[in-house]
Nucleic acid binder design. Structure first.
Lengths: 191, 191
DNA sequence: CTATATATTGAAAGATCGTTCAATGAATGA
DNA sequence: TCATTCATTGAACGATCTTTCAATATATAG
């Protein structure tokens, strides 16, 4: 690996991080290549030396999220309520201490739910569904009495909505206090 | 009020509602005047007969939210936890049964937190802060033992984040089941 | 019915954005 | 050192978007 290749890779990371911050704050269409280039301190034309297009830059970010720490949230053999406690704790702890993680969490939500993203991104994310597998785990917890009664899908929506909303808030305002993971877990806990 | 004025007003409502749906799904920049015009079935030029600009159309929507049912959420003399139970119940019930309410809730969040909105909208919303007054009520509930201990602002963020996330999900997918307001209230309740 | 006001269209203007490209400066390798 | 490759710029191109406008159809008023 030559010095030039190292610096090129570092420059790519800078562009990606600048893009991440702008995309979650201004949306895909609201963010211009000029915005990103100015943030990292380069000319607009030069950015195309690192990424072939705006679409590809955004897709590279979403791919980072798909392969990254986001999908460490995997169903396990844990006791159901303990799984949610662990998951909430892991995600909130990372949101609190790693700005990149918090922003990436918001970007993935944006990429999944917004219609203001390239079709290639939608294709990459098609088939992703956090609610269905989570709802299954909730049903197991309801069966063994640790998770409250109620529509499992609705409980899943409540759990992830809370985490998602917190990520959105803290990704932009890192100075605000982060809710405790136990509060979110108690949303599911049977009394 | 002539027939013409009635129809003009009705047409304005149609444009506003079409814009609301598109804005929350594609963002401000991602939504084009052409999009909105096509949705209501008129030419692009005609839309400027009803709204002077895209900015003004968006601002009219946010103004509806500011004056509308959104600010019926007012601190009262209620017992603190009862206030949150009532608020969560009111908001979730409206999100569940009134698509316009759910979408408006999402739009207000977008207008407040996104940087992809006209400066005039930011000015209209400056000074709005749901967290600070809510955190005050939480402190009262902590004082009388009905609300759990912990950073009041963080509890406020957790409460509203959950509701906001649910609104975002149901505004786009109205067929999904709506979480119970008690689940959200239990997020604050002392054990 | 006639004249005036309103509704509507499609095209054009003006602005902005993504993208390309020729030209130049800097670093690398032989 | 010199030739070659890479980094960088700024201007230009084409596409798209907001907004305007002249022209036409339709409805209202007297």
């Amino acid at each position: 690996m030559t010095i030039r290749e190292d610096q090129k890779e570092k420059r790519r990371q800078d562009i990606l991080y600048a893009g991440l911050g702008l995309f979650i704050q201004k949306g895909y269409s609201g963010t211009t290549i000029k915005d990103i280039a100015r943030t990292v301190g380069m000319s607009t034309g030069l950015l195309f030396h690192y990424f072939a297009s705006k679409k590809e830059l955004y897709l590279a970010l979403v791919s980072l999220g798909v392969e990254g720490p986001m999908n460490t949230v995997q169903p396990t053999q844990m006791e159901p309520l303990a799984f949610f406690a662990t998951t909430a704790d892991f995600v909130l702890e990372n949101i609190r201490t790693e700005p990149f993680f918090a922003k990436m969490f918001v970007l993935m939500h944006q990429a999944y739910y917004s219609d203001d993203v390239p079709a290639s991104v939608k294709e990459l994310l098609s088939g992703f569904d956090i609610y269905t597998p989570t709802a299954d785990i909730i049903r197991q917890g309801q069966a063994n009495g640790t998770i409250r009664e109620g529509d499992a899908l609705a409980l899943s929506i409540a759990f992830w909505s809370a985490i998602q909303g917190i990520a959105e808030t803290l990704a932009v305002h890192a100075h605000l206090p982060c809710p405790q993971s136990e509060w979110i877990t108690d949303l599911l806990r049977a009394k």
